[in-house]
Simulated assay, not measured.
Amino acid sequence: MKVGKMVWLLAIIILLVINITIYITVPSWQNGVPLSLLSFLYLFPIWMYYKENKLLSIKNKESKLHYEELLKQKEQSEEKATQLGQFIQEIPVPVFSINMKNTQCYFSESLKELLNLNSSILELSHLEEKVHPIDKQQFLKDKKAWLSGYPSISRLRLQGDSHHLLWVEIRTKISVNPSGKVDSISGIVIDITKQIEIEENLKQMAYYDSLTNLPNRIMLRSHLKKVISRAKRKEHDITIMFLDLDGFKNINDTLGHDTGDALLKEVANRLNCGVREEDLISRIGGDEFIIVIEETHKEEVKMIAERLLTNTSKPYLLNDQTVYVTPSIGISSYPDDGHDIETLIKNADKAMYLAKDRGKANFQFYTEELKTYQPEESLLERIWKFFQK
Score class of each variant (00 low, 15 high):
46 I>V: 15
57 S>N: 09
79 E>M: 14
57 S>C: 08
37 L>I: 10
71 L>Q: 14
85 G>Y: 00
72 K>Q: 11
144 K>C: 03
92 P>G: 07
62 E>M: 14
140 L>K: 10
52 E>Y: 15
55 L>I: 12
82 T>F: 10
108 S>I: 02
33 V>A: 12
144 K>A: 09
80 K>D: 12
49 Y>G: 10
35 L>T: 06
150 Y>K: 11
130 K>D: 04
115 L>E: 01
77 S>A: 11
115 L>T: 03
77 S>G: 07
109 E>G: 05
58 I>T: 13
45 P>I: 10
75 E>N: 11
106 Y>M: 06
148 S>W: 02
114 L>E: 02
62 E>Y: 06
70 L>E: 05
84 L>A: 02
61 K>H: 08
34 P>E: 10
37 L>V: 11
140 L>S: 10
119 S>N: 03
148 S>D: 09
148 S>I: 05
127 L>V: 00
100 M>G: 08
141 K>G: 01
150 Y>F: 14
111 L>W: 01
69 E>K: 03
38 L>D: 09
45 P>D: 09
45 P>W: 10
52 E>K: 15
34 P>Q: 12
89 Q>S: 12
34 P>K: 10
119 S>W: 00
134 I>A: 15
62 E>Q: 15
97 S>P: 03
72 K>Y: 12
102 N>A: 07
59 K>C: 00
149 G>I: 05
70 L>I: 07
103 T>F: 06
138 Q>I: 07
33 V>S: 11
39 S>E: 13
72 K>H: 15
34 P>W: 13
146 W>H: 11
70 L>M: 12
112 K>P: 06
91 I>T: 10
90 E>D: 14
52 E>W: 13
149 G>S: 12
80 K>W: 14
54 K>D: 08
152 S>V: 04
75 E>R: 15
71 L>T: 09
36 S>N: 09
129 E>Q: 00
127 L>H: 00
137 Q>C: 04
68 E>C: 02
74 K>T: 08
77 S>F: 15
147 L>C: 10
126 H>G: 03
135 D>Y: 01
93 V>C: 05
37 L>N: 11
118 N>E: 09
146 W>K: 01
131 V>N: 05
116 N>P: 04
95 V>F: 06
63 S>M: 00
121 I>Y: 05
98 I>P: 01
120 S>T: 11
112 K>T: 03
154 S>E: 10
137 Q>P: 02
62 E>T: 13
91 I>F: 13
141 K>F: 14
104 Q>I: 04
46 I>G: 07
100 M>D: 06
95 V>H: 00
94 P>G: 07
130 K>L: 04
88 I>T: 08
53 N>A: 10
42 Y>L: 08
141 K>L: 08
125 S>D: 03
68 E>K: 13
134 I>S: 11
63 S>N: 03
136 K>I: 05
36 S>R: 05
132 H>K: 06
111 L>K: 01
150 Y>N: 13
111 L>G: 01
92 P>Y: 03
128 E>T: 15
38 L>P: 05
74 K>G: 04
34 P>D: 08
63 S>F: 02
55 L>P: 06
92 P>V: 04
108 S>L: 02
103 T>M: 14
88 I>S: 02
88 I>V: 14
55 L>Y: 15
